[in-house]
Design a binder for these strands. Sequence first.
DNA 1: ACAAAAGTGTTCCTATTACACCCATGG
DNA 2: CCATGGGTGTAATAGGAACACTTTTGT
Lengths: 235, 235
Amino acid sequence: METAEELNFYFRAAFSGSVVVFGLDKGLIKVLLVKRPKEPFKGLFALPAVLVYPNDSIEERVDELIAQVTGTRIFYKKQIRAFADTSRHPLGRVISIGYYSFININNCQLIDNLEDGKGEWVDLKTIPKLAFDHNEIVQAAKRRLLAKMSTQLAGFEMLPEKFTVKQVQEMYEASLGHALDKRNFRRKILSQSVIEETGDLLNPWEESGKAPMLYRLNRAEYLAKKEAGHKFEIF
Amino acid sequence: METAEELNFYFRAAFSGSVVVFGLDKGLIKVLLVKRPKEPFKGLFALPAVLVYPNDSIEERVDELIAQVTGTRIFYKKQIRAFADTSRHPLGRVISIGYYSFININNCQLIDNLEDGKGEWVDLKTIPKLAFDHNEIVQAAKRRLLAKMSTQLAGFEMLPEKFTVKQVQEMYEASLGHALDKRNFRRKILSQSVIEETGDLLNPWEESGKAPMLYRLNRAEYLAKKEAGHKFEIF
DNA sequence: ACAAAAGTGTTCCTATTACACCCATGG
DNA sequence: CCATGGGTGTAATAGGAACACTTTTGT
């Protein structure tokens, strides 16, 4: 066994959680960024992130972080991986554990927080230069989003409780980065029987033409399919 | 900005790399385990792991670790994710970054190392109770293996330089956990033109019957296909 | 000649793709 | 009545799944 001094020397790293919060806004995938209110990288955009105390659960701290910045606790979240380059943080060895998250933008109340600054929704396609290695984390999150949406029915956390088929299609199109055939998409998603009619029409409906039907997720069916290793592929 | 004391308190975590090394042995996926030579969990099987000094690159340290235990530097390796439960290590907050790796078992010279103990190849299907949260890491690695092999041409690092189509099929069968049709598999993999005939037959050939042809990976074609987001699905 | 493993084609069926019109509503 | 978006069906094609026999070689 290592001597106490040797062992002690290992316990000098810090770690943080950083999160790429995805939301859907008018057919575009947006990412929640904050302007750093303090050094290092003061004034640059960055991902919401927290340093985590050695005794704290990182999952809990990241949940809190998301809740603090977005004003809601309703979201999906999943770890991407650890980002651990030796030089990623100027103040010492800080390993960041990256997460991505889906949230309904319209549920959010972006709070102007002294700690973190206020969040802004930025189009995923036009992310600026970010603090630390956060551009790399966003890249990894983007790949995960693509992989997830390519193979699974997912992302409903970005939609309202009741949604139209078109909204689902737009979410898929934005995630995959290209258009999909309306009839084929509709047939495919409805054939899975994980979304069901509510009986309601979208209301208010400002456009001309017919108001679309509202659907909701059948959560029981959805979970069952997920457990069964259900596949839903769109490329 | 945090005060220096506050900030200092964050820098009290340690981190390690843990690796699930996969190899293929007579049609079975095996995992490299070591018997822990020291506390904690002395005597239990565990994954090869290293604590990493705050200034060191974890990627490099994990590469070294694999080389130390297996005696070769030829392998594939990829991060799974961070394992960061507060109570995963009895001596303090130690975050472990999990990796999985593919290696050719026949290239390995398992070395009896004072630090790590000697490695043993254990059938993935009969992994015993392991130290720390290593069973969880193995589970995650197994899922990654399944996901990777289900959607990609991969794993050639587990095979010798020249291999038979049957060996590739056995690798896939072991990874996926079920048998595949010989003719369909052969057609499918050959149609990708990422493996090519060497002209040689397997030799020595102790079985009765015809000696099988040896193929090799066409690395240029393989990389090109990989870049192009090539898909190869087998479920 | 026989035992054992390698190697090879075809058929069926399901799933994906491509594609155009009618309907309902609001102004 | 017209403009706008919602909602629907069919035909062609490609890819996956199921399946059995012949060839080669060593004993």
